[in-house]
Amino acid sequence: MNAIPETPLLSVRDLRVHFSLPGKGLFGKPRTLKAVDGVDFDLFPGETLGIVGESGCGKSTLGRAILQLIPPTAGQVVWLGKDIVGTRDRDLQPLRRDLQIIFQDPLASLNPRMTIGEIIAEPLVTHKADLGKAEIRNRVKTMMARVGLLPQMINRYPHEFSGGQCQRIGIARAMILEPKLIVCDEPVSALDVSIQAQIVNLLQDLQRDFGLSMLFISHDLSVVRHICQRILVLYLGNVMELADRDTIYAAPKHPYTKALISAVPIPDPELERSKERIVLKGDLPSPINPPSGCVFRTRCPFAKEKCATDIPMIETLGPSHQVACHFHGRM
């Protein structure tokens, strides 16, 4: 792996996103849903960081809060040395050129009444108003060819394309301004297996060619293993473990990481039937009323008394390995 440069592109510090909900009943006290509750990490230029966890763990909210699409409740998002939390919309506009997002549902994220040429051109029209029409059309066609779409399809509408092609359109729209960071929110989850590999390869090629950084949000740990250099494991809005890819898959320290990895089926009958598994009981608890102490303790097969009373601090185990568990050394 390449040496990671010293200065991070993005630093997230103690980021929190809390939503207030109406109380139960007419006179109930308002409640707070802590979707993201104190997340720290750095992202370096050219790096892909995977954010994994079950549905409801806050991974999408985290991605959106970093892009300021959801206003964070507290904490810092330092982009190129400057905290952008609380920046006015008007002042965010120039930053958005460098910060793009790709969504899970490829068709739902494209306006059905716009041609794909208009869709892909929209960021250019917004951010580079001085470009002429012909130049915009040229750049759109070049980008279409780059992501594997036939440029002569520029006047077609989204419904004429398959799911995989719609995802290519979404990628072209995100790439047209040559951003520095793309947040990919489950970009391949809705695609067929054979198409998924095509899109993963495309993202990797684009990353190499443009020197992009990516936050790759996914519940699929097999895809994440393929595309990400470092992986952050999130549970109920809290970081459980953060490590580089090889460490996290070969020697996970947090029981939740271990359970997640062992639950992923391996497409090999002998290995799948003989592997050791940690089956977690039950479902994710409600983030409105999270467990005391360690949020994972209610499903943790190794939970002890201390886990119910003390919140585990994030411990640094190595140059790029952090874990939040009282008993990580003893498992």
Binding site: S162, S194, A197, Q198, V200, L221, H226, V264
Partner: peptide, 25 residues
């Protein structure tokens, strides 16, 4: 064969590109 090759696997480190079946269903 193509389906099996294009499955990302959690039990293997991937150094090169993933195999992808070309084209559309």
């Amino acid at each position: 064969e193509g389906l099996l090759k294009s499955m990302p696997r959690i039990d293997r480190a991937h150094e090169q590109k993933m195999y992808a079946i070309p084209g559309q269903p």
